[in-house]
Design a protein around this nucleic acid. Structure first.
Lengths: 207, 207, 207, 207
DNA sequence: CATGAATGAGCGTTCATTCAT
DNA sequence: CATGAATGAACGCTCATTCAT
């Protein structure tokens, strides 16, 4: 891992813990064990650092859905479920980052980041549009659903699940630990999402 | 409207536009047309102002679900749909505030606010738990769904819809205007939510 | 006691506890149980309040030495000892105020107060000049001592004793309490002062 | 001289002129010709700056009395007079600082400074206790005097002399100038102190 | 490449005072 | 007389960034 990536990872953690504004470049430099001036040196500014972080993390997801879309071996249902599973896995691995995404959208201040996010969403929306049309026309999906609204529900559920961990744990009488989140919680979310996807799009379980 | 409420409204707008940290008390005082010292005078601090904002806006929702829960004239389906419609209406009326809620959760820094939000969520979760159990046991709902996960999907969809307006508009070839959001977009969201709720919980349309 | 005097007393306490600058008019108004605006109303400003406090407290001492000086029934030694005893009694009764005096002189900022204090000192110096000359010429005092330097030692000892209470207590293995200060400490100071005065001016004990 | 020391000197002057509270960090930065942020950078806070100033200035005196106490070549009388002379010289060289000391004690607010001062006083008191006992037991001093009260008189006289310059000058028909203070006034104080020390402790002049 | 010093702007807050009632 | 709202200035401090080495 390069030094730049190291800094980005530490910054990511801090952003997700305290938010972009409340994280000072001093905090980042301290967490990354480097001199404060190096952040300007490497990234130009705090905002540019954030942008680089986004570019780094977002590319993975975009590549993934592209591969799925182009894979002719998969059925429509498989495509949907694969995309969904991949999404959750990425969120699970990079919880910090997805919190940052959420915060950045909620406070749409860094225009460069917002623009970048907008374009990413477009790609995802294209994917869902194609796959949902495909599924409906082929008869795999019984319901015709607006792809953007469908995507809104999927993304919304996943994002909100990041904020409702404590609530879920309390209601099921367990304690929130890193292990529980990783090994149990995200699995529950995945099953829930698969289940509601089946119901919403109208297809039968393939398992 | 009292002066305090006026300040709170202006602060709400700014918080939703730029985030809590990026909004200075000078910004607020300027937007509200008051002297900067009045913010401390009225609220004690910037953080306390935020807390008052939350208490003011959250109470409406809590009162609403409580009334629905206790209203014995409603069927289970009606309760769910009424809660849902009420929720969307509040978000529609106070878009700014719900953006702030989202940002505050994403960057969980103001512990007082986070605690307050946690308790509100508990109340909502209780509502859904009761109603979903009632619906399933009475046979109105064919599917048994975890109430917290169901709530996560509902809340997530609504919150995410605040962030996906532009995406939806682009995909449907319209321009985002305040009127369109108010008169069209939120209606689409409402219909979508009703629809997926039916699918997820497993009941027939009552319309 | 008039309301003005009540305010002055409370202000005096606060000034001695925290200093003039660190005491806000809000503090004073709160301590005195009055509205903040009344301080400007009664005194014009915080600085004027301080000046009034000085005028009130200083007058007592000035009247006292004047009476002693004019009292022809007293021997020179009696005059010195009476002045000294009176001084200590006033400091004992108004510890707070004499702390304020000290602080005001150390930070000579309020010019009006400084001027006022200067004039008071002049009166005391006149007293000592007259009495010391009288004592030396009559043979009562064996030593010829500069009256201003003598006064500096007397005043300095008394003032410093306000700052060395804790030190004295520690060295004598006792705890500092209000009672101890009142009933023991100031008595020790008085005896010490009488003793060094005898030694410095060169006269025999009259007790 | 390092930049830190330069800042401390300028701060010292301002504190003695206007007091700690009335001196803003902006004043200090202006007087020292540095950017306001450097004060936090170098010292952490305004209070910490004050503490550093105290540590810097106080150490000299403590070292000095320790050396005197341990110097077996000196007679008891010489020890007392050397300590006294050293004290006056330090006050003469750092008039500003000793004004600050006085003000800080009068308004005992900065607890850290007060604690530090308390410990310094203890060391001085120890010195006087040892030397006075030594002198009395060896017969050098005819009078038995409480060491803390003796120290109170010495310190009090010196401190008060800082506040009575103008009074002394007026009574002797001279004008207060820096030269006069340095070349005449402090000499008078020194002689006065030696004289009263002889009278108080009861020993003969050694000159 | 890397450092620590330095900068200027801005932060939230508190101040003494005044105003309208 | 008395109140609470309101004002403008100043407070100590921290920020992201840049500079000199």
């Amino acid at each position: 891992m390069t030094k730049k990536e190291h800094i980005l990872e530490k910054a990511e953690e801090l952003f997700s813990e305290k938010g972009f504004d409340a994280t000072s470049v001093r905090d980042i430099s301290k967490a990354a064990g480097i001199n404060i001036a190096m952040i300007s040196y490497y990234f130009g500014s705090k905002e540019k650092l954030m942008e680089e972080l986004f570019k780094m993390r977002m590319s993975a997801g975009l590549v993934s859905v592209k591969e799925i879309a182009e894979n002719t071996d998969l059925t429509t249902v498989e495509k949907i479920e694969k995309a969904l599973t991949g999404y959750i896995e990425r969120v699970k691995t990079h919880k910090s980052f997805y919190r940052v995404i959420l915060a950045e959208q909620a406070t749409n201040k860094n225009k460069s980041v917002i623009r970048f996010l907008g374009k990413s969403k477009e790609s995802y929306a294209q994917f869902f549009e194609t796959v949902l049309a495909e599924g409906y026309e082929s008869g795999s999906f019984k319901h015709k659903v607006d792809p953007v609204l469908f995507m809104t529900t999927i993304t919304g559920t996943i994002m909100q699940s990041l904020l409702n961990k404590q609530l879920y744990a309390t209601h099921h009488g367990v304690k929130v630990t890193e292990e529980w989140i990783r090994d149990v919680y995200f699995d529950k979310i995945k099953e829930h999402l698969k289940s509601i996807t089946r119901n919403i799009l109208g297809y039968e379980s393939n398992s």
